[in-house]
Design a protein around this nucleic acid. Structure first.
Lengths: 80, 80
DNA sequence: CTGTGACTTTTAGTCCGTG
DNA sequence: ACACGGACTAAAAGTCACA
C-alpha cells in the first residue's frame, strides 16, 4: 500500500484502525488506553473512528501506550 | 534511541531536524518544500525549528514531499 | 533563502451527558 | 465497554511584514 495515494480522510481512518487493532490485540479497553495516554476516553473513540487529525506528540503518546515505536506503528499502518 | 524518553519539545525538535536533514539532502529550499507540501513557507521554517506540533495529515504531506514513507521517516528519526 | 512575532481562523482535545 | 452529541477551552493551521 502506497501512503501517497491516501487522502486526508483515509489517513485518519487508517490511523484509527491501526490503533484499534493494536489496542484489541493487547486487550485494552478504550478507557484503559485513555488512562495510559493521558487523553480523554471520548477522544480515543473519535481517533479510532478516524474522525480526528491528531498531532505529533499525541501520536507518540498512542505509540508509547500501545508499546510500539512510531516507525513500527506506521509500518503496520502501511501494510494494511 | 528510545522515543519513550522524549518529552514534547524533544519530539518536535527531532521531527524538525529530520525534515531539515532530508530536505537539504535533496537540495530543496524551504520554498520548494512549501510548494511540494502545499504549506506556507514560514510554516516549513517553524516545523524545522521544532516549534510546531503538526498534525497527522501534515506529517503525511511532509513525507510525500520528501519522497519517503512515514514508516521510514520515523525510522530515520529514531536512529538519530 | 530563512527566522521571528504577531495575528485570525480552524480544529484539537476536554468534559458533560445519552442509549 | 463503546458511539455519539453539545458545549466548551486550548492549541494547531495558516498568513503576513519585516529582518
Amino acid at each position: 500500500m502506497n501512503t501517497k495515494d491516501l487522502n486526508n480522510e483515509e489517513i485518519k481512518k487508517l490511523f484509527g484502525a491501526t490503533v484499534r487493532k493494536l489496542r484489541t490485540e493487547k486487550a485494552f479497553s478504550q478507557e484503559v488506553l485513555a488512562e495510559k495516554t493521558g487523553l480523554h476516553r471520548t477522544y480515543i473513540s473519535d481517533v479510532e473512528q478516524g474522525e480526528r487529525n491528531l498531532s505529533l506528540v499525541n501520536i507518540f503518546k498512542f505509540c508509547n501506550a500501545l508499546e510500539i515505536s512510531p516507525a513500527d506503528f506506521f509500518k503496520l499502518m502501511e501494510e494494511a
